[in-house]
Design a protein around this nucleic acid. Structure first.
Lengths: 152, 152
DNA sequence: ATGGTTTATTTCGATAGTCAAACTAAATAT
DNA sequence: ATATTTAGTTTGACTATCGAAATAAACCAT
């Protein structure tokens, strides 16, 4: 005898809306309560885009987080002043600014990664290996769909 | 013989991060290209919080979208001026402002719901009923986890 | 009923984030 | 050499947000 399977699109939809509407805010609030209360979630995303070992240029980072170059400049100024990131002029092309995380920057970066890992762990709570595979497939569907939306 | 099931936590995690980082921005960009280019995503969330049949007060809406009362007032001003929402003073308590969507407001509200429905449909692309049930469970895990984080 | 307190919203002043346009400096092409 | 392109910065205007003070209505205890 089969278990009854309830498919409730509306519930799932509203759960999903709920997650999207709340994640950002929770992330922001968590940050404010933490040891790193001097940066906003947007700052965090800048740090995240620079990431650990990359040495990306200012304009590359700007593109990733969808900021204009001018806004990027002031965002960098602020994070440099607070000691999270470093500006290094490239040796090979002295127009470009290479960005790197300071020690402090690497610490928040890892903390933030921890937050996301918690999210993933909780998404998978009480799931069997085969079920985990299903969830992975679903999320990856979403990634591809969004990637598709981006290129018109 | 079993299919090999690959469990790759890191891939799922980075997919999830990808989704969170991009959804908001895509939503914002979609709005800007649409017929309703005169409102931002935050405005959209205000409209969403007011929603169809509720008649919520200004402070209730402020709480939902995590805005201070003063910021709420100016947000409402703007949306009233643009013709998306209406201010109605309550009859039973003349201090409270009841908010409602205008016709135009209801139109964007439905369009926005459509966006979220597309997201949900794409999350579930090519899923069997039993698999859909798994995805529902996973997302609901996340909702509960986030709800839990909110209350400390 | 009246005075004091609480509640809901608004107004005001200050601050921060954003963009577009103009600008500087460096690299590349003609 | 000179012009063009590219990377980043500066500037000025605009918008969103907050906190504090103001307003106004409702509630409550006498």
């Amino acid at each position: 005898m089969n278990e009854k399977v309830t498919i409730d699109f509306e519930t799932l939809n509203s759960d999903l809306v709920d997650v999207f509407n709340n994640v950002m805010w929770i992330e922001e609030a968590a940050l404010k309560q933490s040891y790193f209360s001097d940066i906003t979630l947007k700052d965090m995303h800048t740090i995240d885009a620079i990431s650990m070992y990359s040495e990306k240029s200012a304009s590359q980072v700007a593109k990733i987080i969808h900021l204009t170059p001018s806004a990027m400049t002031t965002a960098i100024d602020k994070l440099v002043e607070k000691g999270y990131i470093e500006r290094r002029r490239s040796n090979t092309d002295r127009r470009v600014v290479r960005l790197g995380l300071t020690h402090k920057g690497r610490v928040v970066y890892r903390a933030h990664q921890g937050f996301h890992r918690d999210l993933t762990h909780n998404l998978l709570r009480d799931m069997q290996p085969t079920e985990i595979e299903v969830v992975q497939r679903a999320i990856h569907n979403l990634v591809r769909y969004l990637a598709n939306v981006i290129k018109h």
